[in-house]
Amino acid sequence: MRPILDIQHVTHAFGHHTALHDISFSIKQGEVVGLIGRSGAGKSTLLRCLCALERPQQGHILLDGVDLTTQTERQLVRARRKIGLVFQHFNLLTSRTVAGNIALPLQIAGRPRKDHAKRIAELLALVGLEGFEDKYPSQLSGGQKQRVGIARALAAEPTLLLCDEATSALDPESTNSILALLADINRTLGLTIILITHEMEVVRRFAQRILVLDHGRLVEDGSLLDILRDGQENQTLHKLLADIRPSLPAFIAENLSPSPLTEPHKTIIRLVLSGDSATTPLFSMLYAHYAVKATLLQGGVTTISQRLSGDIILSLEGEHIEQALAFLKTATQSMEVLGYVPSHP
């Protein structure tokens, strides 16, 4: 199947500063992709290139087979109508009602005026704002404004929905409901969605695939599990992951030493579990086979992109520690020794 979006060797610079460096990836119909990076990683530049507001200096961007980089400004105006954009600060026109805001892309696309009301009612039902037609944006909460933003982005039936930090200005509760809405839209309409964010927590919820951007380069393209695995070696990933990973309790972190101690000690490890390994009775196996007692210090099992996954920190103590660690390495997605603490501090 032809990809809906195909980015080929995109490079873009502002003066001497290279904002994007040889970026290539492609996205299939119906995928939900999280594009994550810290501020200054090049996310915004890539976004502006994707929605044809900026023309990359090198490379090609194919949207549904049309190369955006070779189009004239007049042709681009048409191409942009195939992309729905959801903004961090909603960007709703304050001079127009909810219905007026959603009608704007319909007017731009030249839909007959008599069909507007029906389409607007449909969209408001989809985003859960029935009867809000005549309200003004100033009368809405942040979450409601973003729902209107999403309805507006969907109005002209785009082939691709780009969400630029769509939940960054919202409280946790609204963030949850907006993410649930986007997941729902992906499921029911089969719409391809790209979530651009600096928050790992946001992409963790439902992005099936994560692209990590750092200093203008694409450093990772895979599932969250891939990133959890690679995060041990890669500092960029490590930092991004810090938001969503359990961290060591302070009283342990203070006493942690990088090498084994001469006195009796506990070994502190981090495990990443997925699928089967998340439901294996690891603790009893450790005790039965290696006489190793494991204590859970932090973390637990959650659902990551519809699969059961665990990210936990354990303290181990017992006779056959080395064998136990070797076993864990094979039985789990990733095992990392964080350090050692004295048994009786």
Binding site: V77, R78, R81, F87, H89, N91, L104, P105, A156
Partner: peptide, 12 residues
């Protein structure tokens, strides 16, 4: 941001 939004929508 509003100007960008409408430009991105394909507004003339």
């Amino acid at each position: 941001g509003l100007i960008d939004a409408v430009r991105a929508m394909g507004g003339t």
